[in-house]
Amino acid sequence: MELHITARRPTLVASIREFIAYRDLLWILAYREISVRYKQTVLGFLWVVIQPVVATVLFTVIFGHYAKLSSDGIPYGLFCFAGMTLWGFFSGALGRAGTSVIADEKLITKVYFPRAVIPVAAVASSGVDFLVAFVLLLIVACFYGYFPGPALLAVIPAGLITLAASAGLGTALAGWTVRYRDFRYIVPFFLQVALYATPIIYSSSIVPARYRFWFYLNPMTGATDLFRYGVTGHPAPNALEIGTAAVTGLVLLLGGGLVFRHVEQSFADTI
């Protein structure tokens, strides 16, 4: 085995191969994130579901009860909770990934491993939280009388699109944050705006036709519609919409990876 170290960055193939070789580290970092997060808390893992539940209750009262937003015939509480569950995955992943590299400054300056493992582990930890919240969502759906059928399989592509989009954006944000600490403030703000640009608290059916192209360019739009279809039988998005979400999700994943590759070499010197 020969290893060459030069000023040039290794090839993309070599980087991907190395990332895969370090998968054990990915899982244990995700485990660390989850385990440390809830240590010495009274409610422990319950915190995973408290956030989406409280947000859902608030939105249900304000938008469902008073503003009477359309939820396409599905009870607003369930409609919103389904959206919030998937959104929690996305926003949690971005929030954690963004600051993940600077939080592990000591590791970056003391030991080598593929740096992308850190933000991807942060995304994975949010994915585990999502799986827990998803189980609660299924229980809530049954409570509302919506029992899962074969359509439930649609949550898999919906989850994968969300994973791709958040891993891509998350790694890019993690890389940029090392250089510009501004991103620590930009990310929460961005997530707040993005929540309203995605059909979480309202239905995509209320978006006027002339904006639909731009609306569906957001991969979370297609993913949310697909996810809702899987859990509640909400009308499914068409193939074009799903395809758009899948393509933009992949573009984000690739783009984020390339951005990270571009900045990661100087991490130890600039962090």
Partner: peptide, 21 residues
């Protein structure tokens, strides 16, 4: 540089074998 924490500005290192630091 040898442990790949930071890249060199110039030059080349070749290591033959698995490296731990």
């Amino acid at each position: 540089i040898l442990s790949r924490i930071t890249p060199p500005s110039d030059g080349e290192v070749t290591m033959r074998g698995r490296v731990g630091s």
